[in-house]
Amino acid sequence: MISIKGDYYDGKTSRKISTSLEIYDNGEVKLSHQDNRGVVALSTLRVSSRVGNTPRSIGFPDGGKFETGNNDAVDKALARFRRQSWEHILHLLESRKAYVFTALIAVIVFSWAMLQHGIPALAKTAAFALPAETNNAISQGSLEILDKGFFSPSEIEQDTKVRINRYFVEMAAKQSQDFDYRLLFRKGNGIGANAFALPSGTVVLTDEMVELVKHDDELVAVLAHEIGHVVHRHGLRRVIQDSVFAMLVVLITGDVSSTSSLIIALPTVLVEAQYSQGFEREADSFSLAYLQSNDIDLVHFKSLMLRLQEDHEDDEGVLGYLSSHPPTAERIKMFEDLKEQAKTK
């Protein structure tokens, strides 16, 4: 006979009775404070699965519960007298260092692969599988918000606008006709020298950008970069990537809801910045490829980058990883690499 010390609660009141569970060699059990009418087979009782070293409870048919901290004795009796439930495997996984270490490596590899390749690839496939009109749907209202919050009407001369628009129309004609390409001019105010692309195909150029550049081909590089965002469906892909990432975080850390939201927010910002930088690289190479195929000197791309860097001098340093754009040096390197390639050809 095995005897396991513990406490008994009858389930009717909160009274505690210190007692022992007596397990006989034929697999029947009885609580030591009860008489022989209380004898039952261990295999008919509800035994809670083991979680770390928390107390085990053994439920009797009348609603009473025996609780004990002696997990090992309970496990031994269970192994001998009844079929283990599948949940005992969980404790096995949770208690062997080798299994936990394997799980750790698997989780790290999975997270990295999902972040680096899985989510972007999934979003790309999904974005191109969706009808082109989806791009219009997610653009709705964006321009109004920008107009209300930041922009004021453009003060650029009409002639200049017409001239720039000619480059834009020429460029748009060579692209996928899934989009309704339009070029708009706005005064950027606080935003400064910049250009934006809405997923629907609308490109906004700020007056400050027009004033910043010294050569029309630099503007062509800007416009090509923005059209790159459009044809690669970056807006839609961003929406999908961010929501898949959010769902994954909820799924995985769903049982860590007590953790402060700040801890979740920081990696989210980091990941979204990395994804954004990926899109910018794609748009840069689109722009470079366009310049190349139209026999425009790639040096204009470089001078554009240098001018922009001078204009927004504060966006690098430690905070570079949180920036939505890759560092200028890296963007210029892409241009240098292309030039190298062109030379060797």
Binding site: G52, E94, V100, A103, A106, V107, L251, D255
Partner: peptide, 13 residues
């Protein structure tokens, strides 16, 4: 708890 937590994440994935 680390071991329980990690196995939880692993099996959830």
């Amino acid at each position: 708890y680390f071991k329980i937590w990690l196995v939880n994440i692993f099996l959830t994935i």
